[in-house]
Amino acid sequence: MIDGRGFADDRIGLKHGAGGRAMRALIEQVCLPGLGGGATPGGIGLAAMDDGAAIPVGDRWLIVTTDSHVVHPIVFPGGDIGRLAVCGTVNDLAVMGATDVTALTCAIIVEEGFPRAGLERVYASIRAACEEAGAPIVTGDTKVMGRGEIDGLVLNTAGIGFCDRPVPDSSLAPGDVLIVTGTVGDHGMAIMAARHALSLDGDLRSDVAPINGVVRAALGAAGGGVVAMKDPTRGGLSSALHEMAQKSKVGILIEEAAVPVRPEVRGASDLLGIDPFVMACEGKAVMGVRPDAAAAVLAAIRAHPLGRDAARIGRCLDTHAGAVILDTGFGRRILAEPDGEPLPRIC
């Protein structure tokens, strides 16, 4: 349970899907008990609330994950719902340690009246993303619903992959180094700009991409030194760090100036009064790395085309367990955990 606070709402609101505290309360107190508690003896299951499950199979681990995708608009700068659906699942597998995707499934629910050309475009980008990730789709499902019963298109993908050692998001220890594989906030800011008709003109584009390649490079260079991973999707870097700090029971100190943020994202974030650290990424990983492996891991990530902007952003503390502290260069503060869909501010 989060900070001892109950899930008190009698209805589900948008905040319960925004990746922050409210969403975790919903999952922990409604979904998890509803699914039977989620104990997975010998593996990583529901109860761990990780990016996916890990089940021991012989001397290896089977990683399983699933993800549903609704995005408005369906096509956005830098990608579309198809690319997002493939990358979301590939990336969840990757941050659990399975960088080679054995198989994906793809289910689609279409609203009556959806244009055929639009659907074909979504499938084309599903195919392209699968090729990029080396991920075969092996089965699928198709449904059509009446006009107004869903909003355009809903995609669900599930994926499986194998690995020798799963990487949980809960194994940080004091002294571990935190690395992010590239700029943060790109996807969230691109979607926000498109969604609220903010008429922002600039290169705000989603970073949606399969990161299994860059994660593979990092794991290959680490010699077992990558001890925790997460993809900072909803709730952004802030949510990912909070989860890692709370599950690992360590403090995390982040140097704000070290976190890569594209200038356009920073500009939009100043303009809209929104912290880029709470905006979603769809092509990045946050890693906790043992200090002696950090240099090699960072070099390997940077050598990958999707990891050129990778940076060492902070470290784990033996104090302040569960807290994420931001050193701003002017002082220090607790990094806020997002608690709802970010909205543009005027105040």
Partner: peptide
């Protein structure tokens, strides 16, 4: 912040909200 009672907890710039999020005067 999830269940605000007073105005100070409502706004992202409300005193209580900010203290709640940033820990007021946390010992850092």
């Amino acid at each position: 912040p999830e269940h605000p009672v007073g105005a100070c907890m409502v706004s992202s710039e409300g005193t209580c909200r900010i203290w709640h999020q940033y820990g007021g005067h946390p010992d850092l």
